Simulated scan of single mutants.
Amino acid sequence: MNRIAFVNGQYTAQTMAAVHVEDRGYQFSDGVYEVIPVMGGKQIDGIGHLERLDRSLRELKIARPMSDRAMSMIIDEVVRRNRVRDGWVYIQVTRGVSPRDHAFPKDVEPALVIYARPKPATARRQNAENGVAIITAPDQRWARRDIKTVSLLANCIAKQAAKEAGAYEAFMVDGDGMITEGSSTNAWIVDQEGRLITRPAGNEILNGITRLALIALNQELGLEIVERPFSVEELRDAREVFLTSASGLALPVVKVDDKVIGNGRPGSISTRIVETFERYVSGADTNIAAGKTVA
């Protein structure tokens, strides 16, 4: 199947899609992105993802390419044209094309790319059932991690280290020995009292849309959530560990570096969270995180 992408106002065969050599995203990482999960042919938390995209654009003073409503309609059309039932949509907005100069150019049109890919839910469900292994790695990213920028080299280095170690993810560690987040996930632990602990939203982490959805869904779970940094030692000694992301929803972690968590199987609280997310994505309201992104 020849996949279709939306590139700067036109639907085009993905094999023919191209960006200009002086696109500032290509030359300076001067752009932002979002990935919206698609399950059952519908966007999951699409409104929340577009709200976060708008925030990232504002923080970098990049013009919005169109309204959220128009972009959502294009996303649905890209999903339809590519016949994606389960998978994801990638959205990238760069400042646009301009002669190379570090300073922001004036009166330049932003560049927009949207494409979709299928991803069967089988692997996610197997990971949720069995749990995943992670490693810890130094956090080498820039200081504005709250902006979902396309500059992901440090994240890629951490993810590659995890892959080479046979792990699913790398939880990154700041200079004080505290966990920030995963290379493409938010990090959570369950302490011995059964409380969920995760780093508070701020410049140090990306405020995940799935993270926000879990906080909102906690009305059903009735668990205590504590937003504070936690250390590598707390991570390894936790009752349970799990991660959240748009692609994986919630996944239990059963091993950190060389330390087995609990009995090496997903714990009862992580399992409840996984089950709650599965009910959520199969329901009618899949925009629970909307309006809850960091201002």
Score class of each variant (00 low, 15 high):
Arg3Glu: 07
Ile4Cys: 11
Gln10Met: 15
Val21Ile: 15
Glu22Asp: 11
Gln43Pro: 01
Ile44Ala: 01
Leu53Glu: 07
Leu53Lys: 02
Leu57Ile: 09
Arg58Gly: 13
Glu59Leu: 15
Leu60Phe: 02
Leu60Glu: 00
Ser72Val: 09
Val79Tyr: 03
Arg83Tyr: 08
Arg83Ala: 13
Arg85Asp: 03
Gln92Phe: 03
Arg95Leu: 01
Val97Met: 11
Pro105Cys: 15
Val108Ile: 13
Ala111Gln: 13
Ala111Asp: 09
Leu112Glu: 04
Val113Thr: 08
Val113Leu: 08
Val113Cys: 04
Ile114Gly: 02
Tyr115Glu: 02
Arg117Ser: 10
Arg124Gln: 02
Glu129Ser: 06
Thr136Ala: 05
Pro138Phe: 01
Arg141Cys: 06
Trp142Pro: 01
Arg144Ser: 04
Arg145Trp: 01
Asp146Gln: 04
Thr149Asp: 00
Leu153Ser: 06
Ala154Glu: 12
Ala167Ile: 10
Glu169Phe: 12
Gly175Val: 14
Asp176Pro: 02
Ile179Val: 15
Ser183Arg: 10
Trp188Glu: 14
Arg195Asn: 15
Thr198Phe: 08
Asn203Asp: 14
Gly208Cys: 12
Arg211Asp: 00
Leu212Glu: 01
Pro229Thr: 12
Phe230Glu: 12
Phe230Met: 14
Ser231Asp: 14
Ser231Lys: 13
Glu233Ala: 15
Glu234Arg: 12
Arg236Met: 12
Ala246Gln: 05
Pro252Thr: 00
Pro252Gln: 00
Val253Glu: 03
Val254Arg: 00
Val260Ala: 10
Gly262Val: 02
Arg265Phe: 10
Pro266Glu: 00
Ser268Glu: 12
Ile269Val: 08
Gly283Val: 11
Ala289Trp: 01
